[in-house]
Design a protein around this nucleic acid. Structure first.
Length: 551
DNA sequence: GTTGAGCGTT
C-alpha cells in the first residue's frame, strides 16, 4: 500500500496517509486526519510554485500517473475563512462572540437517506471533518431502536454548516442529503449551485472544477449521466455563484451558459407556510429586510448596467409593497422596454432572473465582493431578488409543458436557449409562449396580453390546468387576469396562462417532473435518493427564465 | 430479520 505524506501546513511534520488501490487518496482519509481540509497541494521543486492536487468525487489524484504521489510532502488546503489556525484564534479571542453568532446563525440540519446502520457516533464522526459538531442524532423507532434513516446534526460554525449544505455526503456508504429541516422554516440555504448549460460531452467535472475555481472555491460538480448537455457547479460562496449567473463562459473551446439552479429542497420547502403568490408583487415584500444589502451596490468596472434580467420594466409602481418595502442602493438600469406595459407595473422584482430565490445569507463570509479574476467587477446580476428567501420562480415557468418529455425542459436551458442577448427589447419580459413554436409574444406589435387572451379563447392554454391546481381558483388566463386586476405589479405574468405555475405549491402534474432514482444507490453515478433533487430540478421547471422564457 | 420518502416523543 502506498502512503502519502501530508502535513497540515507547509513545513509541518507530515503524517502518512494510505492511498487506495487505484493510487488515489480518499478525501475522507485526508479529512480523518485533517478535519476541515478540502484538498491537497504541494511545492513543485522545479517551478517553486505550489501546485494543487486534482480532486474529484471525493478522491485526490496523484500528480503523476507514472510515479504516483512521488516523494512530495503534501500539505492541506482548507477552505478560505475556515483555516484551522484562524479558527483557533477565533476560539481564543472571541469565543463568546463566536458562540453568540453560532446561536444566531446555525441551525439543526436534517440528514436524510442515512443507512440503517449509521449510528450517532458514526454520523458525528463523518461530519466532524467539516467542523465542530455540537449535536448528532439518529431518529429511531422507539420500540425497536432501529434507525428511521434520518437524523439531525448541528454545527458549531456557520461556515461548516454552509459547506455541509452545499455538498453531497457519502455516509457509511450511502449518499445522503442534508437540508435545513422544514420545521425550521426557511433557513440558511443559499444558492451556491449554478446550472451550466450547453456543455459538451468532453467537458468533465475536472474541467468544470478547474475552470470555475478561478472565480471561487468549487465544492461540488455534478454531471448528470447519461449525458444531458448540462451540469451543476456548486461554489462555497453563494455570491460567486450568483455573480456568474447569466454569463457565457468558454470551457475547452465550448461556450457554456451559466444560470441559476434552484435546489429542489427550496421548492418543496415552500409547500409549507403561506400560499405565495409568485405572480404578485406581494411576494417581493414577503421578507422586507434586505439581506444582501451590501451586494446591491453598484459596482464600477462593469457598465453600471445590470445585465440580463435586472431591468426594471414598466415603472408603473402600482404595487405599494414594492414601492415601500425597501430602498435601492444599487444603480438601476431602468430599461423602459416593457412592450405595452399591459399587466405590468412596478419593478420587475420577483422576477425572471433565472428562477432564483434570494438567499438570506447576508452574513456569509464573503464580504459582499467577489474577487473575480476575469477582469470583471463583482456585481449583483440578480438584484431583483431582494429579500426573498423563498424560491420563487418569478418567471412562472413551472406547470404546463404537458406531453413533453422530461428532457425537453432542461435541454432548453442546456442549449442556452433564452430570450436574452440578441433582443434587448425582450429582456426582463419573460413572456412564455405556450404554443411551443417560434412565437415570441413579446416581439409582436400588439399587446401580448391580447394575444394571451386570444390563446385563452382558443383553449390553447390554461384550461388543461384546471385540475392541477386546486388551490387556485380561476380556470384560465383571463380569470387570472381578472383576479389580479390586470395590472399585477409583476412583469412575469405568465402569458401562457399556466396558472399552476403561479403557485409554488403546485408540484403536481406539469410541474416538476419527478426523476425517481430513489431506489438507486449507485454511488459511482452519484445516484441516491438524496440526489434526486438535483436531478429533478433539471428536469423540472424551476430552473430559470431561460427555459420558460422561450418555447 | 424486511424498507428508502420524509422532517425532530427535546
Amino acid at each position: 500500500m502506498d502512503f502519502v505524506q501530508v502535513s497540515e501546513e507547509e513545513g509541518d511534520e507530515p503524517i502518512e496517509l494510505p492511498a487506495e488501490e487505484d493510487g488515489t487518496l480518499l478525501l475522507s482519509t485526508l479529512q480523518a486526519q485533517f478535519p476541515g481540509s478540502c484538498g491537497l497541494k504541494y511545492r513543485n521543486m522545479d517551478t517553486k510554485a505550489v501546485r494543487g492536487v486534482r480532486s474529484n468525487e471525493g478522491r485526490l489524484f496523484p500528480p503523476s500517473v507514472d510515479s504516483g504521489w512521488g516523494e512530495y510532502i503534501y500539505f492541506c488546503v482548507f477552505p478560505k475563512e475556515n483555516k484551522r489556525k484562524s479558527d483557533d484564534n477565533l476560539e481564543n479571542s472571541t469565543a463568546k462572540t463566536k458562540r453568540i453568532e453560532t446561536r444566531l446563525r446555525c441551525t439543526d440540519l436534517i440528514v436524510l437517506g442515512l443507512p440503517w446502520k449509521t449510528t450517532e457516533d458514526s454520523l458525528r464522526e463523518y461530519f466532524e471533518s467539516y467542523g465542530e459538531v455540537l449535536m448528532a442524532q439518529i431518529k429511531k423507532d422507539v420500540k425497536s431502536g432501529q434507525s428511521k434513516g434520518f437524523g439531525f446534526v448541528r454545527f458549531g460554525s456557520y461556515d461548516a454548516q454552509m459547506r455541509v449544505l452545499s455538498n453531497r455526503h457519502l455516509i457509511d456508504g450511502r449518499w445522503c442529503e442534508v437540508k435545513v429541516p422544514n420545521s425550521k422554516g426557511v433557513g440558511h440555504q443559499v444558492p451556491c449551485k449554478v446550472f451550466v448549460g450547453r456543455c459538451t460531452e468532453d467537458i468533465n467535472s475536472d474541467d468544470l472544477r478547474e475552470y470555475f475555481s478561478k472565480f471561487g472555491e468549487v465544492t461540488d460538480v455534478f454531471i448528470p449521466r447519461p449525458f444531458r448537455a448540462f451540469s451543476f457547479v456548486t461554489f462555497f460562496d453563494p455570491d460567486v455563484a450568483q455573480s456568474l449567473c447569466g454569463e457565457d463562459h468558454i470551457i475547452k473551446g465550448v461556450s457554456v451558459h451559466v444560470s441559476n439552479a434552484a435546489p429542489k429542497a427550496e421548492q418543496s420547502r415552500s409547500h409549507q407556510g403561506q400560499n405565495y403568490n409568485y405572480s404578485s408583487g406581494n411576494s417581493y415584500g414577503m421578507h422586507s429586510y434586505h439581506p444582501q444589502g451590501n451586494h446591491m451596490t453598484s459596482h464600477p468596472g462593469r457598465s453600471g448596467h445590470h445585465r440580463g434580467n435586472n431591468q426594471h420594466n414598466a415603472h408603473g409602481g402600482e404595487n405599494p409593497n414594492i414601492a415601500n418595502s425597501h430602498s435601492h442602493s444599487h444603480s438601476h438600469s431602468h430599461s423602459n422596454n416593457a412592450s405595452g406595459g399591459y399587466g405590468m407595473g412596478g419593478h420587475n422584482y420577483g422576477g425572471n432572473a433565472g428562477g432564483g430565490y434570494h438567499n438570506n445569507s447576508s452574513n456569509h463570509a464573503s464580504g459582499g465582493h467577489i474577487n473575480r479574476q476575469d477582469g470583471g467587477a463583482p456585481y449583483n446580476r440578480q438584484g431583483n431578488f431582494h429579500g426573498m428567501n423563498q424560491p420563487h420562480n418569478g418567471n412562472v415557468g413551472s406547470g404546463g409543458w404537458m406531453n413533453r418529455g422530461p428532457l425537453d425542459m432542461p435541454n432548453l436551458q442546456a442549449l442556452g436557449i433564452n430570450s436574452q442577448g440578441s433582443s434587448s427589447s425582450n429582456q426582463g419580459q419573460n413572456m412564455n409562449n405556450p404554443l411551443g413554436v417560434g412565437l415570441n409574444l413579446n416581439s409582436l406589435p400588439i399587446n401580448p396580453a391580447l394575444v394571451a387572451a386570444a390563446l385563452n379563447q382558443w383553449s390553447l392554454v390554461g384550461n388543461q390546468l384546471q385540475n392541477q391546481n386546486q388551490d387556485q381558483q380561476g380556470g384560465n388566463f383571463l380569470s387570472w387576469m381578472a383576479q389580479n386586476g390586470g395590472h399585477n405589479a409583476n412583469n412575469n405574468v405568465n402569458y401562457g396562462g399556466r396558472k399552476g405555475s403561479n403557485n409554488p405549491n403546485n408540484s403536481g402534474p406539469g410541474g416538476m417532473i419527478k426523476v425517481d432514482n430513489s431506489s438507486c444507490n449507485d454511488q459511482q453515478n452519484g445516484c441516491a435518493p438524496g440526489n434526486a433533487g438535483w436531478s429533478n430540478q433539471s428536469s423540472g421547471s424551476q430552473n430559470s427564465v431561460e427555459k420558460s422564457n422561450f418555447l
